Simulated scan of single mutants.
Amino acid sequence: MKNVFRNTLALCLALFSVLTINAQQKRNMENTALLIIDVQNDYFPGGKMELAGAEAAGNNTQKILEYFRRNSLPVIHIRHIAVNEGADFFLPDSPGSEIHPRVSPKGNEKVIIKHFPNSFRETDLLQYLQKNGIKNLVITGMMTDVCVDATTRAAFDLGFSNSVIGDATATRDRDLNGQVVKAVEVQKSFLAGISALGGLYAKVVNARDFLAGQ
C-alpha cells in the first residue's frame, strides 16, 4: 500500500508541475503576437533572391507558427511587394512574392503588405497592434539584417517588447567595399546587435528553447 501511495503521490506532483508550467507559459504569452516577416518564395531555392539557410529558417518559423495556432494566439504575416525602381524580386503579382506554403496565412490571421524594410512604415501594423492590445512581439522572418532588423528596432522605439527567434531568420552573403562577408557572419552580427546591452532591442532565442518555454 505504501508503494501505491508513493507512486500516486509522485504522479500527482508531476501532473501538478506540468500544469503549473503550462499555466505560467500561457500567462507569459498574454498580449503577445507572432510577426512573420517576408517568408516569401523568392527567398527559397529556385527564387530570385535565395538566402543561405532559408529552408531551416522556414521550418523553424513553421514550428513557431504552429505553436501560436495551437494556443489561439494572434499571428501577423508581413508580405513585401517591391515597387521601387530597379527591383528584381518580390515583384507585384509574381509567384516569388507569394508567402511560402510552409507559413501560408489561415483563417483570420492578419496579412500586411509593405514596401519598405520597416514593417511599420506606411502600413497599419501599429494601429492593428494597438487595437488588439498587443505589447509583446515574437519576430521571425527574412532578411535578418534588413527587414527583421529594421522592424525590430522600430518596434522597440514604439514601446514593444521583442523576442527574435534567431534560427527562424535568414540572410545571404554581403559585399563590403569589394570584400565578401559570409551570410553566417552577417547573421551572427545582426542578431548580436539587436540583443546587445542586455537585450535592449530584443531577446534572441532559438526555436527549441522558445517552444520549451525558456
Rank of each mutant, 00 (worst) to 15 (best):
L197A: 13
R121F: 11
D209P: 03
E109F: 05
K26A: 12
A202W: 00
K135Q: 15
T61S: 15
F190E: 03
Y201C: 00
D149M: 07
S189E: 03
F16T: 08
V39F: 06
N84W: 14
G198Y: 08
R79W: 09
A196H: 08
L125W: 08
G193S: 13
F90H: 13
I76Y: 01
F89A: 04
I99A: 09
D124G: 11
F90I: 04
D145P: 02
D88E: 15
A54D: 06
V138G: 00
V205W: 00
G53R: 07
L51A: 14
I112S: 01
S104I: 12
F89S: 09
P45F: 03
N60Q: 11
F5I: 14
A57Q: 06
A33P: 07
D124Q: 09
V111N: 07
E30D: 14
A196C: 04
Y128A: 08
K131I: 01
I78H: 04
L211R: 04
K63L: 10
F68H: 04
L125E: 08
A10Q: 12
K2P: 11
P92Y: 13
S119D: 02
A14V: 13
L176W: 12
F156R: 15
G58C: 10
N84M: 13
G47S: 03
L91A: 10
R153G: 02
L129C: 10
E122N: 15
L34A: 00
V18L: 13
E122C: 09
Q40T: 07
T32C: 08
E30Y: 09
A192Q: 14
N118D: 15
S94H: 12
K203N: 08
I139S: 04
V164E: 00
A192L: 12
C147V: 07
G58A: 09
N162S: 08
A33V: 05
F90N: 11
I76D: 00
S189T: 10
R208F: 05
A33Q: 07
N84K: 15
G178L: 06
N41G: 04
D124I: 07
S94L: 12
H115E: 13
V39D: 07
M1R: 14
V164I: 06
L191N: 01
I36W: 00
L9P: 01
G46K: 04
S161K: 10
I76F: 01
C147N: 06
D145E: 11
P105D: 05
E30A: 15
I165C: 05
V184A: 07
D42L: 01
K2Y: 15
K203C: 00
Y201P: 00
L126D: 15
M49W: 07
G159R: 03
T169P: 05
S163W: 09
F120Y: 11
D38Y: 01
A14R: 14
K114E: 03
V180M: 11
N136I: 02
G46E: 06
F156Q: 11
